[in-house]
Amino acid sequence: MTSEQLFQIFLNGITLASVYFLVASGLTLIFGLMRVITMAHGTSYLLGGYFGFSVASATGNWYLAALVAAAIVGILGLIIHQVLIHKFQNDDLRVALITLGVAFIGTDLMAATYGGDAYQVPAPSNWLGTVVLPFAGSYSLQRLIIILISIIIGVALWLLISKTRYGAIVRAGVDDSQMTAATGVNTRVIFASIFLLGSALAGFAGVANGTLFTLLPGQDGTFLLYSLVVVIVGGMGSIPGAALGALLVGLVSQFGLYFAPTYATVFTFALMVIVLAVRPQGIMGKVRL
């Protein structure tokens, strides 16, 4: 392997990590705060991608497409939370089954609307082309932009959760939601806002990923699975954990693809198994008593 190849593969790993992070950050927030696993998270991702494709194709405006997709998917997530999940919030198995049902319905509706063809969200024309980087040689500009966007969103989320009053309430809710409610915080509003934010992030991730790669049926399940791996590896409820988990999963899968392409998928899941064996709460996760 030349040093240029090494850096290229490293950047590819980070690109993949950026997309996984965007999907998983929403999941980890919902999971950390509400202790419910939403099986419809992959569906939110794919739906966002499809919306993004439709809007970007019709208007030629990628930014508008990303905004619309995130807004619609976020609001849908909010409605699903208020109508279906809110009542059963303390029953994790029931929430998993309800959201699984929502995921099936969503998958079939998307297949009926968009069919089995592959779609790619058209990128803004000034994103096309390559730039020459030190050590890595020429690299795709739109990949670098998606990496940058993910970093900005990641930092903003981290600031929101760790530096604001809202974040302090969310963190208090993550640690002990009953005690937080007892102090007079309206946890229903907080839970709803986290569901909105988490779903919107998944929708945005669909547009970002759909710009680099193609969107197609079945990806909802794949991305749900990978974001679960990221959340499990990084630690549930932690934004830096999701970033670290995504980075590890992205790098392991890309270096795996170079050294032993046939077993690239195996490495990713082996990583999860090792983390679960050594540190069951995830790398950045807290042990709760």
């Binding site: 699984l100 995921a103 709760r288």
Partner: peptide, 25 residues
């Protein structure tokens, strides 16, 4: 939130993920 409830979530996630993959087609 107790550790026992949290640890129950993993099998739920695993079962859910398996169902979602198996039943998709």
């Amino acid at each position: 939130m107790s550790m026992s409830k949290k640890s129950r979530l993993l099998p739920v996630m695993a079962i859910g993920a398996t169902f979602s993959l198996l039943l998709a087609g």
